[in-house]
């Protein structure tokens, strides 16, 4: 795996530079790279194979020329027709699969492939079907890593599974964000919701470090914080779902948080107010994340179905399992960091 990574490196900077110059505003970039589909599809065969969605259809259609575009427009109109008449389904948690697959993922995909050039390893550790709990490290000041994790599993997993991320309650208090979050299939990080999702056979993603992880200063990058109270282990044990440790490298450097304005945080009622070299000094420009090179590695699943039912109430076992997961992620992080050549390539 580590060796295979070397090959695309020679070509990477050019694509990256192009992508970086493509536009600095988030919205501009999101709209522009939607069109040129065939190039990345050939570059990353595994990604294209996992897609199976509209992108691949577009890639195959491209040589046909105008016909492909008309097909796309017709597909778009069909989609629009369903949306404006409300003829689509959402699940009990508000997950709108159609919107996620067709719109949000196509917006996230350029970020994943062109901007952060996310390299996904060990995707086979996520089961084809049945429940699993992905436990990942959390970093980056804004929860971009959660979105990238979701996009990575969606695009690279052979079954195209959607990770149901568990989000902090702050997410559900903010307008627009809570709406999008629910439609993407996220739900509140609480034992009840996590358990229900696991019982329904979903892949659930959790970042147990929470605000301690995402809002830690730049000097403490890649040092895992306390994993909450280990509630995620309890939930996984109750549902008998395997725990898949996941290490994300690259997210720490997107917004290097060199300071934290407690006064502003208290005024705004948020857990931390980041000060980065660019934010808030450059205004909205400071919101542009640095184009770091990411690696998402999924580790060997830790089975939890071998324990007796009363194990979920054994605090010692909880702590041990929590530590095991935490150590695995921390070791993988160090290993990936050693392999990494530079932050940006």
């Amino acid at each position: 795996m580590a060796d295979a990574k070397v090959i695309p490196f020679g070509e990477e900077p050019r694509t990256k530079r192009r992508a970086r110059r493509g536009g600095t505003g988030r919205t501009n970039r999101a709209a522009a790279p939607l069109a040129p589909v065939p190039a990345p599809a050939t570059e990353q065969p595994s990604a294209a194979a996992a897609d199976g969605g509209p992108e691949q259809g577009g890639a195959g259609e491209a040589p046909a020329g105008v016909g492909g575009w008309e097909r796309k427009v017709a597909h778009g109109l069909n989609f629009l027709r369903r949306r404006i008449t409300g003829e689509y389904e959402v699940d009990d948690f508000g997950y709108d699969q159609e919107l996620t697959d067709q719109v949000v993922m196509s917006v996230l995909r350029p970020f994943k492939e062109k901007y952060f050039r996310v390299e996904v390893k060990g995707i086979e550790n996520i089961p084809e079907k049945g429940s699993a709990l992905i436990v990942a490290n959390h970093s980056g000041t804004l929860p971009v890593d959660g979105l990238m994790l979701q996009a990575a599993v969606h695009d690279h997993h052979p079954a195209g599974r959607n990770v149901r991320m568990l989000a902090a309650d702050l997410v559900f208090m903010l307008p627009v964000i809570n709406e999008l979050s629910r439609k993407l299939g996220h739900t509140l990080a609480c034992a009840e919701d996590a358990q229900k999702l696991l019982e329904r056979g979903e892949v659930v993603g959790v970042m147990p470090e929470g605000f301690k992880g995402i809002g830690k200063p730049f000097s403490e990058r890649y040092k895992l914080q306390r994993f909450g109270r280990g509630g995620f282990v309890q939930t996984a044990l109750r549902a008998g779902s395997p725990i898949v440790p996941c290490s994300i490298v690259g997210a720490e450097e997107i917004y290097p948080m060199i300071g934290n304005s407690r006064t502003m945080a208290r005024l705004l009622g948020i857990p931390y107010f980041p000060l980065t070299p660019a934010f808030p000094w450059l205004g909205p420009l400071g919101l542009v994340p640095l184009p770091t090179k990411w690696t998402i590695q999924f580790g060997e699943p830790i089975p939890t179905d071998g324990y007796p039912p009363e194990a979920a109430d054994d605090p010692m076992l909880m702590f041990n399992l929590t530590d095991q997961v935490r150590e695995t992620i921390q070791h993988t992080l160090y290993k990936l960091l050693v392999q990494r050549r530079s932050v940006f390539f």
Binding site: E70, R71, A74
Partner: peptide, 22 residues
Amino acid sequence: PPETLARTVDRIAALMPAGRGQ
């Protein structure tokens, strides 16, 4: 009314050659 909206979209789709084919 959703029916009217759907009809409008259908009409736009019918204007396109590919839409007619589908």
